[in-house]
């Protein structure tokens, strides 16, 4: 696993948070939401809370992973909400989250919001996660048009930690194959670079895997760097 985070070219502070532990096969990317320092606080709380839950847990069996992830995220969601209620200046803060757990032959991926995880494999790239955006929910009929506030943007988030007391998360299980590279990123990367471009950069720099996050971040900054950029790469080797 290799990762990096960058403030980008437009923002003054970095509201993204990143944590990974290659030995444990565990990684988290969170992208904070909210003015002032709220986003920073929320993403940092989510990452440190999940990290703490993970480190504090006993050996987790395969069937325990999904309940573990949902319980830990539920708990952190409430903590973010409660802190927002206590501290007026960060009220309404929230965060997206992608949490990766590599266990046995599978990747378990918990996802909420619009940070993404891609799978790169043999020069192909696939977006694994579904952005929890108004546009996607409308298209799938999961949200009635009447429920959308007038003027809401297509990319507006329907789900994120800190927005409501119940947070619905997606938990995916992905079978591992040697050669796969999982690209987990905040929308500072996916909003700046097309999927095809991300695949091309990975493909051209595979021999420099350790510096790949920096190369991707530089490319996103070169494309405008409108948001904070975080990249976590997990390479499955035989």
């Amino acid at each position: 696993m290799v990762g990096a985070t960058d403030v980008g070219r437009r923002r003054k502070n970095n509201q993204d948070s990143l944590y990974f532990d290659e030995a444990a096969g565990f990684g988290i990317v969170a992208d904070g939401i909210g003015g002032h320092s709220g986003g920073e606080v929320a993403s940092s709380m989510a990452v440190s809370g999940l990290r703490k839950a993970f480190l504090g847990s006993d050996r987790i069996r395969h069937e325990e992973i999904a309940p573990f992830l949902s319980t830990a995220i539920d708990k952190m969601n409430m903590e973010i909400i409660e802190r927002g209620r206590r501290e007026r200046e960060i009220a309404g803060m929230g965060t997206t989250l992608n949490c990766l757990m590599f266990v046995g032959d599978s990747l378990h991926l918990a996802h909420v919001g619009d940070s993404r995880t891609y799978m790169y494999y043999k020069k192909h790239i696939f977006q694994l996660t579904l952005d929890h955006s108004v546009a996607n929910f409308l298209e799938r009929g999961w949200l009635p048009k009447s429920a959308v506030q007038p003027g809401a943007k297509d990319g507006a988030l329907v789900r994120a930690m800190g927005l409501a007391e119940r947070v619905d998360i997606d938990i995916y299980e992905v079978p591992l194959k040697s050669g796969q590279i999982f690209v987990t990123c905040s929308d500072g990367l996916s909003g700046m670079l097309e999927d095809r471009k991300i695949a091309q950069i990975i493909s051209e720099n595979l021999d420099r895997f350790d510096t790949l996050p920096k190369i991707l971040i530089d490319a996103a900054n070169a494309a405008g760097g409108r948001d904070n950029i975080t990249v976590l790469l997990s390479h499955v080797r035989s």
């Binding site: 992208d31 507006a156 329907v158 929308d187």
Partner: peptide, 8 residues
Amino acid sequence: SPHGKVAH
């Protein structure tokens, strides 16, 4: 409301 984003 889940619909109001939330600039980030």
